[in-house]
């Protein structure tokens, strides 16, 4: 059992508050992705869990044991670094076996585990090389193998694929997912690439300015963003927003239309809809098309609705040209509402 609990963790660098009161529980064997823009504190949180950084306040528990006062080596973790950190003075074999040697394992046991993890990562033919003789992708594999060979309870990865080219990244992503699913370890994976996050994660924790704004399954993060920030961050292109004013009895005026929404007394809300949840219709939001980008199967339209930029993804058999006037209907069950003051999601049913 290696459940990770992060309790009220905060971190200051001098006068800069990098993390605010983080609370997060990661289940045993879960694949958790920390997703957020650059500088939001993902690495800092990961490094606090690893013991490479000390939190200002709060506690970290792994497998029912408080570990935040222990040095990294006693936490039962292994880490994969963004720049691989393969030791240049050791062969690939000795790199992978480094942690095992530190545990004073017998020679044949080291050989057995190194060979096995090397085979798992498809680098068994590189064992005698030095890191200077490896490509970036191969170094990445060595770094992962070195972490896996430890058979850790928890594996921590800080943007492990970000230095690889797009094709290799795709390949390694699929491979990592397979290997980690086999290994029964709890994984925390830091990335700012939302596609990577979506494809790898059991759960995604979206971070923003040192806070976790939502921790949920990829689909939930996509469909039901807890905050306006998440709605505007996830998805490519992200959600469209329009101001809505209270029309009484849970009805809201958006542009020239009236929609059914949450039955709350607020004077104003924000209406949000994903570009792919719009359909051309006889009755809908008046949109003036500014730009048409064909994406193969779809058309990406950039429009102007009530003076606000609005994107729609439509089937590519449509014929639309820039300057056209269009009516776009929003799929009713895909419409989301946000409170403009708190930027929190406002549920419709409540």
């Amino acid at each position: 059992m290696a459940e990770i609990q992060i309790r009220n963790v905060a971190k200051r660098f001098g006068s800069y508050q990098a993390l605010h009161d983080i609370n997060l529980t990661i289940a045993d064997q879960e694949f958790m992705v920390l997703l957020g823009a650059s500088g939001c504190g993902k690495s800092t949180l990961l490094r606090i869990i690893a013991g490479l950084e000390t939190q200002t306040t709060g506690e970290v528990w792994i497998g029912g044991r408080r570990i935040d006062h222990l040095p990294p080596k006693d936490r039962g973790i292994a880490m994969v670094f963004q720049n691989y950190a393969v030791f240049p003075h050791l062969t690939v074999f000795e790199n992978i076996g480094f942690g095992l040697r530190m545990q004073k394992l017998r020679n044949d046991e080291v050989t057995r585990r190194v060979t096995r993890t090397a085979e798992l990562m498809h680098i068994e033919q590189l064992l005698t090389r030095y890191s200077g003789e490896l490509s970036g992708g191969q170094r990445q594999r060595v770094a992962v193998a070195r972490a896996l060979a430890m058979e850790p309870d928890v594996i921590l990865m800080d943007e492990p694929l970000s230095n690889l080219d797009a094709l290799l990244r795709l390949e390694m992503r699929a491979e990592l997912k397979g290997v980690l699913a086999e290994s029964n370890t709890t994984a925390i994976y830091v990335t700012h690439d939302q596609v990577e996050a979506m494809s790898l994660a059991d759960r995604i924790s979206v971070m923003h300015q040192g806070r976790i704004v939502q921790a949920a399954s990829p689909v939930e993060v996509y469909r039901d963003p807890a905050e306006r920030f998440v709605a505007g961050f996830i998805g490519n292109p992200p959600m469209n927003f329009l101001p809505a004013s209270n029309h009484g009895n849970g009805r809201w005026a958006v542009a020239d239309q009236v929609f059914a929404g949450p039955d709350v007394s607020a004077a104003a809300l924000e209406f949000a809809i994903r570009p792919e949840d719009l359909r051309p219709a006889d009755d809908g939001l008046e949109a003036r098309v500014r730009l048409v980008e064909p994406l193969g199967a779809h058309l990406l339209l950039t429009c102007d609705v009530a003076g606000t930029m609005f994107r729609a993804i439509l089937d590519s058999d449509m014929t639309v040209r820039a300057g056209d006037q269009l009516k776009l209907a929003a799929m009713p069950d895909r419409i989301r509402w946000f409170d403009p003051d708190t930027s929190l999601s406002v549920p419709t049913a409540a």
Partner: peptide
């Protein structure tokens, strides 16, 4: 010498000294 090399060693079972 990148700090990450040392940090990697720490996570792999080293103390600061080792």
């Amino acid at each position: 010498i990148p700090v990450e090399l040392e940090e990697a060693a720490w996570t792999l079972g080293c103390t600061r000294l080792t």
